[in-house]
Amino acid sequence: KELVLVLYDYQEKSPREVTVKKGDILTLLNSTNKDWWKVEVDDRQGFIPAAYLKKL
């Protein structure tokens, strides 16, 4: 499984997104879309802008 580091706080703006904090380490589920990556946060799955994440 691939992990990503959150570079900036992000507040979800729709039900398909998730809220994260800078410094969080998340499981990356899908990065095929270059703009929005799907991650897992506390048993929730959702999207975050790829620019907010860095692969570890």
Results as ranks from 00 to 15, higher is better:
1 K>P: 14
2 E>M: 13
2 E>G: 11
2 E>C: 14
3 L>M: 11
4 V>D: 00
4 V>S: 02
4 V>W: 06
5 L>I: 14
5 L>G: 02
6 V>P: 00
7 L>V: 07
8 Y>M: 13
8 Y>R: 14
8 Y>N: 11
9 D>S: 10
9 D>I: 02
10 Y>S: 01
11 Q>P: 06
12 E>S: 15
12 E>M: 15
13 K>M: 12
14 S>L: 08
14 S>H: 14
15 P>T: 10
15 P>Y: 08
15 P>L: 11
16 R>L: 13
16 R>W: 15
17 E>N: 06
17 E>D: 05
17 E>M: 05
17 E>L: 05
18 V>G: 02
19 T>H: 04
19 T>C: 05
20 V>H: 02
21 K>A: 09
21 K>E: 06
21 K>S: 10
22 K>W: 03
22 K>H: 06
23 G>D: 07
23 G>K: 02
23 G>V: 01
23 G>S: 03
24 D>Y: 08
24 D>N: 08
25 I>C: 06
25 I>F: 05
25 I>D: 00
26 L>T: 02
27 T>K: 13
29 L>R: 04
29 L>E: 03
29 L>K: 05
29 L>A: 04
30 N>D: 15
30 N>R: 07
31 S>A: 13
31 S>K: 07
31 S>E: 12
31 S>Q: 08
33 N>H: 12
33 N>F: 09
36 W>M: 07
36 W>F: 07
37 W>Q: 01
37 W>H: 03
38 K>R: 10
39 V>C: 08
40 E>R: 11
41 V>I: 13
41 V>D: 07
42 D>T: 09
42 D>W: 11
43 D>Q: 14
43 D>P: 03
43 D>R: 11
43 D>W: 09
44 R>D: 04
44 R>K: 13
45 Q>L: 07
45 Q>D: 08
45 Q>G: 06
46 G>R: 05
47 F>I: 08
47 F>S: 03
47 F>G: 02
48 I>A: 15
48 I>D: 01
48 I>S: 03
49 P>K: 05
50 A>M: 06
50 A>T: 06
51 A>W: 13
52 Y>G: 07
52 Y>H: 09
52 Y>C: 09
53 L>C: 15
53 L>M: 05
54 K>M: 15
54 K>T: 10
55 K>A: 07
55 K>E: 05
56 L>G: 02
